[in-house]
Nucleic acid binder design. Sequence first.
DNA 1: GCGGCGATTCCCT
DNA 2: GGGAATCGCCGCT
Length: 182
Amino acid sequence: MPPFDPQISALELAPALIGARLIVRGVGGLITETEAYAADDPASHSFRGPTPRNQAMFGPAGHAYVYRCYGIHLCLNVVARPGEAVLIRALTPLIGVETMQERRGRARLCAGPGCLAQALDVRIEDDGRPFDGGDLLLELPNEAQPLLVGPRIGISRATDLRWRFGLAGSRDLSRPFPPQRP
DNA sequence: GCGGCGATTCCCT
DNA sequence: GGGAATCGCCGCT
């Protein structure tokens, strides 16, 4: 498990994962965009308690929560404290770029949660697996990263919360962030 | 059981 | 900017 507090909240973990190194079976890069989903959060899958799909969100921190979205895509999360997780929305490809290009077949490799999952070959059987350096590896950055914040993408509830985080200056974002206000 | 609805992406206009 | 693709999950009848 990555070296972070197993009781860390999603809202703390999401910005902390910006700039982290994410490797899935030898392919990956640096995380540029995340979103926090909390336990008492109407937009979170965990809002109504444990179900077969979201059980990994209630499992140990530092493990993966992978779910199918729109019947087509997979999305990868890092579990925080029980009922909370961080959606990995984008990264800068570093390792295995050619493999990602073959899997994607288009220029946009990892800008968006579904794109990222396809480029990294995230699988539904990765659901619940630890980021322990086996199939999944997560390394937090050594230094604080310059952050962007904004509202989360693609949700219909709790849209006022600014729980989306990005790496300032990065070219690899799923969408631009709104103008930053102090 | 059943029906609506996504933490999305791509292609078209 | 708008709509289709696509299907498992979840809430409710």
